[in-house]
Design a protein around this nucleic acid. Structure first.
Lengths: 140, 140
DNA sequence: TGACAGATGAGAATGCGTTGCATTTACGTT
DNA sequence: AACGTAAATGCAACGCATTCTCATCTGTCA
């Protein structure tokens, strides 16, 4: 969309990271992945662009990008973590327990509410994430 | 408190599970653990009661108890899962990122709100859990 | 261009959790 | 009270996601 969202090289420099083809590839892949790929899937997709990428680098890059706040890691139950570009709008995730599909649901007010609650308890929220496991209902 | 909450043997039978000393030990330990122990900690505590308990049995028992709805598993980021007796009241968890301490925060209205939202999307919630990572603020 | 810290690839290592298998045990039935 | 059987257990081996080691390579900056 707007220019700043796609200038990966600059985003990396801003985060104090070197600009390498592997990192550019992973950022580009994450940027136009509507799903939430895991490390294996990212490796496969990255190798289509640059066939020398290793799994270790995928993990190292994901950690660095997460630390820089560029991406978000989703820790799931009983399956490898998934990753997404840090979303503009707060949202949580619903895992369809039958298909494994992950969908997003917006969540601003809840997130804000919780931030206020925690503040009164003397805590500053670093991250919050709701994981919902659900199954599709059939029409009643 | 009331009788039914401590009749572990009956709870196991109701769940279609055999009553074994290992399972009784684990249930008893979980019942009066104010913290949220992980598998290793449970093993250590269980061995104080019955020194023959094995780690495999801890995991197998935890799975069975979770399946039966007697306990809840907390999947955390970058550390072993923790477990708690299924709480009477819905609550989420705050992990203090400096101390590792886990505290609980009530959550009824948010949980209900989310249940309604998901229902409109055609989903029936099986479980929902919010994990908050936070740090203690010092007085400003 | 040269120097060098940071990044990478390959594979070994780690750690949480699971599984196969032989043995034991809970528990309904004689 | 002893029996039979499926379920449960302990132990060790295993599986899998993630991290680490280390030798080599490469961005970046002077």
């Amino acid at each position: 969309m707007s220019a700043h969202t796609t200038d990966f090289a600059q985003a990396l420099r801003d985060a104090g990271l070197r600009v390498t083809p592997q990192r550019l590839a992973l950022l580009a892949i994450l940027m136009d992945s509507a799903d939430h790929p895991n490390a294996d899937e990212l490796l496969a997709r990255a190798r289509a662009l640059d066939d020398s990428v290793s799994l270790a680098t995928v993990y190292r890059t994901l950690s660095a990008l997460e630390e820089a706040g560029l991406i978000r890691k989703l820790t799931l139950e009983s399956e490898p973590s998934r990753y997404e570009i840090t979303p503009a709008a707060e949202h949580d995730h619903v895992v369809d327990i039958d298909t494994g599909e992950v969908i997003e649901i917006a969540n601003d007010d809840i997130a804000r509410l919780r931030r206020e609650t925690l503040e009164q308890l003397g805590y500053e929220i670093v991250s919050q994430h709701t994981l919902i496991r659900a199954r599709r209902m059939r029409k009643s």
